[in-house]
Structures are given as C-alpha cells and as structure tokens.
C-alpha cells in the first residue's frame, strides 16, 4: 500500500484542493484547515487504514504524533500500521 498516495488523497479531499498540489512538505496550516477539519481528517485516516490515531486534546504532547505536514501524517500512519501488525 502506498501510504503517501492515500494520505495525499485524503488531505486533498479534506482541504478541497487537487492532490497534485500537495507534497510531503505541505503544511496543514497552509491549507486553511480548522481544528474541526483536522479532526475529520483523523477520522478519515483511521477508517482508511484501520488504525487508531492517538490524536486528542492532550495527546499530541505525549505520543509524538504530529499532524504538522503531509509528511508527518504519512510517517505517523506508517508507524501506526506497523504497530498494529506487530500487535
């Protein structure tokens, strides 16, 4: 599975932009996504990859999960998929 391709598709859909305009370096803040949009994106990612993303009011601080850029999301998803398979 090409995580990067799928994450870009989901981010593009949420931000209502063309996937081709996104790269690993695209920051979510540059896509004008509000916090509720990011929460919806997290839900879409969990559904797509069948993972639990520990993203919450206080959890960003402790789990090392960052949703700063597209690349951050791809790395987080790969890590969470690997953890699920190992479990």
């Amino acid at each position: 599975m090409d995580t990067e391709h799928d994450v870009i598709e989901l981010v593009a859909k949420q931000a209502k932009v063309e996937p081709t305009t996104l790269t690993r370096d695209t920051k979510l803040t540059d896509l004008n996504l509000q916090s509720i949009d990011v929460v919806e994106l997290v839900f879409a990612i969990e559904e797509k990859f069948d993972i639990e993303v520990p993203y919450g009011a206080g959890e960003q601080n402790t789990t090392g999960i960052s949703f700063g850029s597209v690349g951050d999301i791809v790395d987080a998803v790969d890590k969470l998929i690997a953890e699920r398979r190992a479990a």
Partner: peptide, 17 residues
Amino acid sequence: RVMSAEMCRPFSKNRSG
C-alpha cells in the same frame, strides 16, 4: 478529540481535555 483520557485540569498548562 476534546476528551482527556487522564483527568480534567482546567486552566492548568498540562490540561488534556
């Protein structure tokens, strides 16, 4: 994603939801 899994800590810097 607004819920704390550990405790309610209003106005505290380490508040978690």
